[in-house]
């Protein structure tokens, strides 16, 4: 029975607001530290790549951004399922709040991918499988954000976006497979952005630290946005009025 009370606590916006407040400073420090250390390490303290020279240093931003863009969508789909099955309000707020963050990381991944492409392959954009899939992921994000904005009623918008994210999550493996297949038809296998950890350890460690830093940053930013959303939606309650009115 302890489990159920925890679960129900999880659904309480006030409980989350209080707990996240305690975590915020820790998140701020760790995300800032890991990001700064990882990026300085990657920029100055790793050897240049044998083939790509110094432009490969973009990897320390491109790879974490790509991972996050995809992971955030998965989290959104999970929140959507939680919302539709257990009707937990906090899940909808999380769903609403994660979408713009995920979209921004998606854009970051696309931009850094494109910028990386120019010195590597001499072109500002290349229709390789990963970049194309990332572009379609951006379409999915835009769809959810647009749908949220177009529906006036908050509860209806919540469930509609939840359905849309679940449909999207089913679509993602299909898209990945199709785009991969399409890509092998039209391009050689030589055009691949180095992502696999078959990298030298000197390059791998700062990359892992950067990924950690980005995840921590995402958690921090999501908490910040979620807290604002809670304040906004619960503005009629006593605890919010007390909190603000001081």
């Amino acid at each position: 029975m302890m489990k159920w009370t925890f679960f129900h606590k999880l659904g309480s916006p006030k409980w989350f607001y209080d707990i996240s407040g305690k975590w915020l400073p820790w998140l701020q420090i760790t995300s800032l530290l890991s990001l700064v250390v990882a990026l300085i390490w990657g920029l100055a303290f790793t050897p240049p790549d044998y083939l790509q020279g110094n432009s490969y240093r973009i990897i320390f931003i491109h790879v974490p951004a790509s991972f996050l863009a995809q992971a955030i969508y998965m989290m959104m789909a999970t929140a959507a399922a939680v919302l539709l099955i257990w009707r937990i309000k906090l899940a909808d707020m999380a769903l609403k709040v994660m979408a713009p963050i995920g979209a921004s990381f998606c854009i970051l991944s696309l931009a850094t991918g494109a910028i990386w492409g120019q010195p590597t392959w001499g072109t500002w954009w290349v229709w390789d499988a990963r970049l194309t899939s990332m572009l379609i992921l951006l379409f999915l994000y835009i769809g959810i954000i647009a749908l949220r904005g177009a529906i006036q009623t908050s509860e209806v918008a919540a469930k509609a976006c939840a359905i849309l994210s679940l449909v999207g999550v089913v679509n993602i493996p299909i898209i990945k497979y199709s785009v991969n297949w399409w890509n092998t038809l039209h391009q050689g296998a030589t055009l691949k952005l180095t992502e696999k950890p078959s990298m030298a350890p000197e390059m791998l460690w700062p990359l892992l630290l950067s990924i950690l830093g980005f995840y921590l940053f995402f958690t921090l930013v999501m908490f910040l946005r979620l807290r604002v959303e809670i304040l906004s939606r619960e503005k009629k309650t006593r605890w919010v009025k007390a909190l603000v009115g001081e």
Binding site: I136, F139, I142, G143, A146, V167, I174, S178
Partner: peptide, 10 residues
């Protein structure tokens, strides 16, 4: 259109 196109791509 926006919502349907990602489903149409495969």
């Amino acid at each position: 259109t926006l919502l349907s196109l990602p489903l149409y791509i495969p």
